[in-house]
Amino acid sequence: MMTTPAASTRRRTLCAAAAMLAVSAAWMQNAQADTWPSKPVRVIVPAAPGGSADPLARLVSEELARVLGQSFVVENRPGANGNVGSASVVKSPADGYTLLFSWTGTLVPAITLYNAKPYHPQKDLDPIVLIGSVPNVIIVNPTLNVKTPAELTQYAKANPGALNFGSTGSGSSYHLSGELYKKTQDVSMQHVPYTSPGAVLTDLVGGRLQLAFPGVTAAAPFAKDGRVRAIAVMSDKRADLMPDVPTTVELGMPALVSETWFGLLAPKNTPVELRQKINATINAALKTPAFRDRLVGLGYAPLGGTADQFEKQLAGDILKWGEVVKFSGAKVD
């Protein structure tokens, strides 16, 4: 079929218009990145104050505010193991003015644990950057006469179902670390869910719980003054906040490793230029001694990297912890 000159002209005109629209859209996105942020940015932390997340979220928000010249306001929105706060971010406009500060124990269970999923972390959120990680630690009430994981396992086997371990909710890192312990050591313990780290630690100190598996940052003050006994850090490297506590890998338990990473995410389809701006700011901060030392001083190991690396980390942990959830039999409607 022969193309007429008029048709050819129309085709060229349409192609030129499409190219102009693409250039215009790119220009607008770049312009938006240049002026962002022009008003305060909300950073949603989907948990109550007092756990491992809060101090890091505030440190990161302070740094973003300092570099980008606008307020980054931390808002704690606890509930349903992070689902309440996370879902509120998913429903927010994808304009860069609402960010999610989240971690392994809230994002992974949203897929692996909940039957009625309020959101899907891989489909409804854009990863921006990993910031830091903290290992979980096995702590016990000092009245429990165990000083090593081997002694704990021996006690648990001799007293099946007698030990109660607390968590910050079904699917949290506290919970899944406990289930990982049960799975690898073939023991029976009772899971008792709470709504905040403070409540878990209060009841552990008070003797209503016998053990817990919190992050090192939350547990360190309680272990330092003897209110709890730390028997092993669930990592291959000793924690700076607990240098005298051996790791599970040291003690011959290489499968008993649990670390929680923390990162920033945004509602799906937030302009990539804005996400890249945040990523670059955090990665630059992680290279400065002042920021890095503060982060390490709080008990975190610095991470950083690309959004793609964050995406792969999330996918890998969904696979790993999904197996632990399946073992535990836990499900939340």
Rank of each mutant, 00 (worst) to 15 (best):
L295P: 01
A230D: 05
M2V: 15
S172E: 02
L144Q: 07
L274R: 02
A239V: 05
N159E: 11
P109C: 06
R227M: 11
A284I: 11
C15Y: 15
L113I: 08
P5S: 08
A162Q: 13
K182G: 06
L204P: 01
S328C: 07
V245C: 02
D34H: 15
K326F: 09
P197K: 07
G329H: 09
Q70W: 03
A280E: 12
L100R: 04
L314E: 00
I139Q: 03
P149N: 11
F213K: 03
I231M: 09
H120R: 13
Q309K: 10
F72P: 04
L152N: 03
S61Q: 03
A48Y: 06
K287D: 11
R58F: 12
S8R: 14
E273C: 10
L59M: 04
L286T: 06
G198E: 11
D124F: 06
E151T: 12
K157T: 08
V89W: 04
N76E: 10
P197Y: 03
Q190E: 15
I138P: 01
N145D: 15
A110Q: 06
V192G: 04
S71Q: 14
G299V: 00
G96N: 05
L144E: 05
L163P: 08
P118V: 03
N145A: 14
G299P: 07
A22M: 15
T112Y: 08
V129G: 05
R58V: 06
V228Q: 01
G51I: 01
Y300E: 03
T195K: 13
N81V: 09
D240T: 15
V324N: 06
P55C: 04
L163V: 08
A255G: 04
V60M: 03
P127F: 01
T9C: 15
A80Y: 15
V192I: 12
A162F: 08
T306V: 02
V137C: 00
A48F: 10
T217V: 12
L314V: 11
D308N: 09
L209F: 08
A199L: 11
L314R: 01
Q154E: 12
M189G: 02
D308G: 05
K39C: 08
L14T: 14
V90H: 02
